Simulated scan of single mutants.
Amino acid sequence: MIHEFKLIRRVEFCETDMAGIMHFSNFFRFMESAEHAFYRSLGFSVTLAREGGFKGLPRVHASCDFRAPLRCEDEVEIHLLVREKKTKALTYDFIFRKAGNEVARGAITVVCVDFDPATRTMKSGPLPAIMADNIEVAPPEKFPAKK
């Protein structure tokens, strides 16, 4: 079972603001990119089809603390760690590093839902077996101390 994943991304010009710094909202996009790449590494997609509708993973919490700026062309490592796993939800921590130095730390909690297109309703449900069977909580020593 897997409890962590790392993705390297380069900051693009379009992701920066007028000061040349990566806009804060893009940290959330980078977290989501790392999450989706994590799922692909396990052999499935964020789009979880099921008969008569689909399962989704809406965010119920997202946060990010910023320590240093990222600029255009910076290469950043996004380190995903599974903080918590429940029957219907997962919480991920994300540590952003540039040249080995932490520049930000974020978190996302997702809840598994069944979406019924006929009624356009969502109801929380258990994580699919492919997630439940392949994802585990990271050991405490994997989480660096907060600065």
Rank of each mutant, 00 (worst) to 15 (best):
F5P: 00
K6Q: 12
V11F: 06
V11K: 04
E12Q: 15
F13S: 05
F13D: 04
C14D: 13
D17Y: 11
M18K: 15
A19V: 11
G20C: 06
M22C: 13
M22E: 07
H23R: 09
N26A: 00
F27R: 05
F28K: 04
R29N: 09
R29L: 09
S33Y: 08
A34W: 02
A37Y: 02
F38T: 00
Y39S: 00
Y39W: 14
Y39M: 08
R40I: 07
S41Q: 02
S41Y: 05
S41K: 05
L42T: 00
G43I: 00
S45P: 03
S45L: 12
T47E: 14
T47S: 12
T47K: 09
R50L: 12
E51P: 10
E51F: 06
E51T: 10
G52Q: 13
G52T: 14
G56E: 00
G56D: 03
L57N: 10
P58Y: 07
P58E: 05
V60S: 05
H61Y: 06
H61G: 02
H61D: 03
A62T: 14
C64H: 09
C64R: 08
C64W: 08
C64Y: 08
D65G: 12
R67D: 08
P69T: 06
P69H: 07
L70R: 07
C72Q: 07
E73I: 05
E75I: 14
E75W: 14
E75F: 10
V76S: 04
I78L: 08
L80G: 03
R83N: 06
E84C: 01
K85W: 01
A89H: 12
L90K: 04
T91K: 15
D93W: 10
F94M: 01
F94E: 00
I95G: 00
I95V: 13
F96V: 02
F96R: 01
R97Q: 11
K98G: 02
K98D: 03
K98I: 03
A99P: 02
A99W: 03
G100R: 05
A104N: 10
R105E: 00
R105F: 00
G106M: 09
G106K: 02
A107T: 07
A107D: 06
A107F: 07
V110W: 06
V111A: 08
C112P: 02
D114F: 10
D116G: 04
T119W: 12
R120N: 09
T121K: 15
T121Q: 15
T121C: 12
T121W: 04
M122P: 04
M122V: 13
G125Q: 15
P126A: 15
P126L: 12
L127K: 01
L127Y: 07
P128Q: 12
M131L: 12
D133F: 12
D133Q: 15
N134A: 09
N134R: 11
E136D: 13
V137L: 12
A138Y: 01
A138F: 08
P140T: 00
P144M: 04
A145K: 07
K147R: 10
K147N: 05
